[in-house]
Amino acid sequence: MISKKSDSLIIAGKKFQSRFLLGTGKFRNKSDVKSCINSSGTQIVTVALRRVDVERHEENILKYIPKNVTLLINTSGARNAKEAVRIAHLAKESGCGNWIKIEVINDSKYLLPDNFETIKAAEQLVKDGFIVLPYVSPDLNVARELVKVGSSTVMPLGSLIGSRQGIRTKELIQILIDEIDVPIIVDAGIGAPSQAAEAMEMGADAVLINTAVATALDPVAAAKSFALAITAGRLAHLSGMAQRAASAQASSPLTGFLYEQS
């Protein structure tokens, strides 16, 4: 039996027992973020950086994130590499660590990441001493380039962000899983625990979920359900289950029937 302890997710030399990364956007109640972290056991949580809203004085999200959780700061809002680099440096100044999810989006209709600008940002931020986890459209050449410049993971999108369509880029993600040596974290588009399990069964190292948990009627239960599915999918992957077959294969022996005559 595979022990959970021996199956760690290792990113930039840091060990994690949970393979569930939680995004903190769109929560109706910020206190649910803390409850979701507790119910799911997630050890990596993403946050974003924005201008202080002088009029609304919104409460800071960091209050609801336990200190032992690794903060992954998202460069969302960046439209090019230069802006992503600027956001990363601002985030580092806050004292919240140097783990950066590079997200560069310059397309307001599909919100697809700009792979080219993401590579440029990754190269610069690695030079500047950041641990970078880039979010990209799944593409083998892009992933290879990201690894070459020193990225700690590759985070391919499963489908359009916030769409809950599941793993629509399955074949392309599978290539990354098979060919890329850093952890592959499926990010965006996962709308149900079954879809998270599917990614893990394929051999993804982890998944990042936000919208599906944050917008559920009961986010805490939703987070727990994803955690269970991710664990199940991981275990299924490690168990070495046989692949699907085109023809029927009997589960019971095809010999020793009662009517057989020798």
Binding site: T24, G25, K26, A48, L49, N60, I61, L62, L208, A214
Partner: peptide, 27 residues
């Protein structure tokens, strides 16, 4: 970027542009 320990000695002048940022929920 101006580090927080330098805020008290940073005098703001005419036409300065200040950005104040903080963390929010995000994926």
């Amino acid at each position: 970027i101006v580090k927080s320990n330098g805020w008290a000695k940073t005098v703001i002048r005419e036409n300065d542009a200040i950005e104040l940022v903080s963390f929010v929920g995000g994926g």
